[in-house]
Design a protein around this nucleic acid. Structure first.
Lengths: 209, 209
DNA sequence: GTCTATAGGCCGATAGAC
DNA sequence: GTCTATCGGCCTATAGAC
């Protein structure tokens, strides 16, 4: 208690990180608790000491992913920027998060899939629903900027909900195909960030840039 | 042999349709062969008579989904249309397919996820890789129109591969949240088709419409 | 707090009757 | 061609030693 633990140093954080990698590489269903434990050079006794079930572990990984995203975007929303510049800054930061935290972002995607598929037990359903609310809140941050920009005449669209979905569909896309490169100096991140941000901006732009 | 069987009437087609519904509702891993058989009012002996494994059944469902998409879009590609009109026609048809064949389209999405996750056995890997080629061919039809339009100065983008991914990311998006409505007369399809097509067009447009 | 050992259930796949 | 019956493996979760 004398010092705060750095992230990744206490029991749970190491498990969350290992689980994120496993879920990314094999998917939720195909990841066994043994596999997560193996990655920690431990056995599943350790995992079950911190988590009551595999589902709870998954939820924690998902939540960590959303915390990364929200804590990046929220401060940008609060800055006093003109709508176009604000959306552009948010978009670039979002794509960077996708590329920098692929493991967590793939887990977030799997959470959406699980929600679509419909979890079996009522308890799981409820848990997933609350996770989806976090995601909707995140989408709301984008929707809010879009509506503001439409009032200023710099964005154009009919249905704000559809527009925010379209923008995020573009910005999330790299998660579906990007693979980490060995050479960190030439990871190609900036080209992806620039280009997908431009597509996202264009799709709701009222005036050509 | 005297008459061709209508789709959905021979043994395999009924199984494919039942499996598509199950995979949509529960996901690949959580769908048991018993569940597919139940939906057919049969037992799994029937399924295993036509398919050697659950994976093969999945591949067939996926293929059916891609056949739906390719057979819709290919004829449009071959028509003699100006690039902007061609892309618009393709986009609308694509979104309609997403809404009209949700079950198969969700399976196609799951196939992409499985590919990302990395199938376990070498045989599965190879099968999935060949399915992904179909998908890339489909994306290529869009890329081709985009490049043609860029030459005519009606589209603008740097990387044609990224541009086609961005366009399809938008057009696929409804699969992630759309749910069938009871009232077929007011299914809301046309609003979704119009709006997401417009976003897709805008994101690569060289001139404002 | 981390381990070993094992219970217990589910499901893919097969064998063989009809 | 469809059924019933069952094997065998895998994996979640728990019990209890250290």
């Amino acid at each position: 208690m004398s010092q705060p633990q750095p992230i990744g140093d206490n029991g749970r954080d190491a498990i969350i990180a290992a689980a994120a990698d496993c879920f990314m590489e094999a998917g939720y269903d195909s990841t066994s608790i043994d596999a997560v434990a193996d990655r920690l050079n431990a056995t599943k006794g350790r995992v079950y000491h911190y988590y009551r079930s595999k589902a709870e572990l998954f939820y924690d990984v998902y939540r960590r992913g959303m915390v990364i995203n929200l804590s990046t975007i929220q401060p940008i929303v609060e800055r006093d920027l003109e709508p176009r510049e604000k959306l552009e800054t948010m978009s670039k930061a979002h794509v960077r998060n996708m590329l920098d935290h692929l493991n967590f972002q793939r887990v977030v995607m799997q959470g959406v899939e699980m929600h679509l598929a419909g979890a079996t037990t009522p308890a799981q359903r409820q848990q997933l629903a609350s996770l989806m609310k976090e995601r909707e809140r995140y989408e709301g941050l984008f929707r809010q900027v879009l509506v503001e920009g439409r009032q200023h005449g710099v964005f154009r669209f009919d249905n704000a909900s559809f527009a925010s979905k379209a923008v995020l569909a573009i910005l999330n896309n790299p998660v579906l195909w990007y693979r980490r490169r060995q050479d960190a100096a030439h990871d190609g991140h900036e080209e992806i960030v620039e280009e997908f941000t431009r597509y996202a901006m264009n799709c709701v732009a009222a005036t050509q840039t």
